[in-house]
Computed example of a mutant assay.
Amino acid sequence: MDELIDILDSEGNPTGETTMKSVAHREGLYHPTVHVWFYTKNGKVLLQQRGKNKETHPLLWDVSVAGHVGAGEEIEESAIREVAEEIGLSIHRNDLEKIGVFKSVHRHSEQMIDREFHHTFLCELSVPLSTLKKQDSEVETLELFSLLQFSEETWGLANVQRYVPHGKPYYSTVIQEIKKRL
Rank of each mutant, 00 (worst) to 15 (best):
V63W: 03
H68L: 06
V63D: 05
I75Y: 01
E76D: 12
L59A: 03
L60R: 04
E86Q: 14
H68C: 06
E82H: 12
H68R: 10
E55P: 08
T56W: 11
E86K: 12
V65H: 01
E86C: 04
T56K: 10
D62L: 02
E55R: 14
H57E: 07
I87R: 01
L59C: 08
W61L: 06
G70I: 07
G67D: 08
I80R: 00
H57S: 12
I87V: 12
A66Q: 05
I75A: 04
G72D: 11
E82K: 11
H57Y: 15
I87F: 02
I80Q: 00
V65P: 01
H68M: 09
A84L: 15
R81D: 07
I80H: 00
H68W: 03
S64G: 11
P58K: 08
A66V: 01
G72S: 14
E55S: 14
S78C: 13
L60P: 00
A84T: 09
A66H: 08
E86V: 03
V65L: 01
G70T: 09
L60Q: 10
R81N: 10
S78D: 11
P58F: 09
E73G: 07
H57N: 15
E77D: 15
V69H: 01
E74T: 06
P58N: 10
L60H: 04
S78F: 06
D62A: 12
V63R: 02
G67Q: 10
E74F: 03
G72I: 11
V69G: 02
E77G: 14
